[in-house]
Design a protein around this nucleic acid. Sequence first.
RNA 1: GGCGCCAUAGCCAAGUGGUAAGGCAGAGGUCUGCAACACCUUUAUCACCAGUUCAAAUCUGGUUGGCGCCUCCA
Length: 465
Amino acid sequence: MKLYNTLTRKKETFVPVEEGKVKMYVCGPTVYNVIHIGNARPFIMFDVVRRYFEYKGYEVIYVQNYTDVDDKIIQKANEEGVTMGEITERYIQEVETDAKGLGVKAATHHPKATEEIPEMIEMIETLIEKDFAYEVDGSVYFATRRFEGYGKLSGKNPDDLEAGARIAVDSAKRNPMDFVLWKPKKEGEPAWTSPWGEGRPGWHLECSVMAKKYLGETIDIHAGGTDLVFPHHENEIAQSEAANGKPFAKYWMHNGFINVDNKKMSKSLGNFFTVREIVDEFPYEVIRFFMLSAHYRSPINFSRELMEAATNGLERIQTGVKNLKYNLAHAKEDALKAAEHGLQKEMLTLAEKFDTAMDDDFNTADAVSAVFELIRFANTNVSVETSKALIKETMDKIIELCDVIGVTLELEDDLLDDEVENLIQQRQDARKNRDFALADQIRDELAGKGIILEDTREGVKFRRV
RNA sequence: GGCGCCAUAGCCAAGUGGUAAGGCAGAGGUCUGCAACACCUUUAUCACCAGUUCAAAUCUGGUUGGCGCCUCCA
């Protein structure tokens, strides 16, 4: 199993810190709004990573934080005249609604920054003791020049950074690259007591602290959006490794951006879509399936056309599995027939392509194509004449693989009420009598109720829209 | 200015040395009373130039075009 490590800029074989376990930390959202389609990508893609590790038999300890103290949250709270807690409480709920809808499993731990303040203060104290941090008038800064590896993740050279510093140099800092670990309270802001006075933690610090608390000093995978490489992840490495004296994360994974018209989404360009808006038109499953169509590190464009293509592709998979289910229910023979051994082998060979793709840095585009090939295999080779053994094995395999990428298939028994059953029977009678006008009338009537009838060689099937 | 990524059919997208997966859309066909589903057929020499090699979309150099990070950001 190989994955691309931003730290080394290479695909590496995954070797866990602790046998059989995967400790992963994914940077979570700042909760002051519903998530947008771009936020959804790391949620979905790293959920796929997690599911694949679990499928491979690993125990995954998955941590995703909520940043619940931040300038934007405070601003929003002030605008609405409510407390910061009311805002964060509200949007954590909203984020969880979307995450659940998108098929994202709940993390093992979902720590909130405001609930980890003592541990943060503790880490700052350690950094000051080790002379990696310094206090100036209630602010504490990390001394980047003291940390030898600064820049190793992003490939940036501290000298270049210093020379190109665009931000106005804060005179309190010893070096423009230094970043804040603790910031003093301003009027009207929430604050916590610390050895450096009332204040609140810097953003970068929280992830270092929460990763350590829930996963230990050296974790397997740290993940997030590609924009977090610098400065956020670079700073996390500096803090954690300076404080703990150990490597922070073995593997760094970064997802590419979602663009609109090949441009980064931004509110000013007016090309900004929240998941909630999209769900009005395309279901959550389609959003997820759309994300799977490209490799997680590539940038992808978001558009209605692509969502429609994803809708149709997903439907093809769902129809295929429904047909398998129908065939299984109507097949006559139970045991695998002698003549079916070749087919069984063919099916398993196709399924192997899925694992091969996922083993190669979670190539979901290729993995999905393996699912499509299995669907075609089923549509072509599996019928009611096939043995139940082969139908079931094929169906179970497709369902299992779909579950790994979090594509949910509606498989619960869908029962029709007597009235509808009756109408279908009437239509069948009408067709037998070649009274197609009546047959079509009944079909239209049922279509009005959202039940689409399809006459196949194997009988009448229905689906709901 | 510094660092980095990308360029494959109408659209999306795998493939990183041996002569182009898969999906969507289109066209034609089979099946069907019709429709739908499904199946079959059909659409590329991989931005451009030069080089390395028996062999390159795949390696090297260059050109052009697009994008990202360097500031809060998934």
